[in-house]
Design a protein around this nucleic acid. Structure first.
Lengths: 112, 112
DNA sequence: ATACTATATCGCCATTCGACGATTAACTAT
DNA sequence: ATAGTTAATCGTCGAATGGCGATATAGTAT
């Protein structure tokens, strides 16, 4: 039983593998902050009620408005949320597909 | 149908919720770099063969030895991998339980 | 004891991140 | 037209990250 001798094929990576790993890392990076995880969790709960966000995320998170806006921008960039103008407010929604994609990519890593 | 008026209960967070969100963010942070995702993927594949790493991760990743060591340190800190001395080498293994925990936490966020 | 190997750590640098206040932009309401 | 509200953007700051070469450490082998 080889305790320490993997075949070199272990290291082989298709172009798709590399893309998947990069995309996974990019989404993970967007989720790498408690405030953003909180936002995603809130928006996901909201989704079950077909609603979008109007309440005071700023006071809820205890962060400055500009800081919250920046977190939303990062989540938007990672396609984890969408933002639709619904004057006078913005309507933020979770992008469940992207969260599911993250889950799928994780599953691929977990069970190769 | 309220398009934009969540009940404030959406925002309520138990202490456990907060801890879970923080732990999820911490693990996500460790996975927020392509090189570390690659390492996790490699070690996971290796796990199925009951092996551990002896091959040249450094040349495989195309990074300096010190850089790879730093990535391993970060993964270790997040408990995603374990390191056991097996002189003259180190035996790195995936910690499947922690990866599974990440998956569970993600599932909780996805389906609250 | 000496030489060799593998890994961790140190010091340095450039870049990115997280936070904030202040400002701007877009739209409403009066 | 004016005032008010919401959100994005700008500028700034300190802290953290990612990268590297060089060095230190721990263990093996001769």
């Amino acid at each position: 039983m080889p305790q320490c001798s993997p075949a070199s094929s272990i290291f082989e990576r298709t172009a798709e593998d590399v893309v998947n790993e990069e995309q996974f890392a990019a989404i993970a990076k967007a989720l790498a902050h408690p405030a953003r995880v909180r936002i995603v969790a809130i928006l996901t709960e909201l989704e079950t009620r077909n609603g979008c966000l109007n309440s005071d995320l700023v006071t809820e998170l205890g962060l400055a408005q500009s800081t919250v806006s920046e977190h939303l921008r990062i989540l938007k960039k990672a396609k984890l949320i969408t933002a639709e103008p619904q004057p006078p407010r913005m309507c933020y929604r979770i992008n469940s597909e992207q969260l599911a994609r993250f889950s799928t990519l994780l599953a691929k890593i977990q069970a190769p």
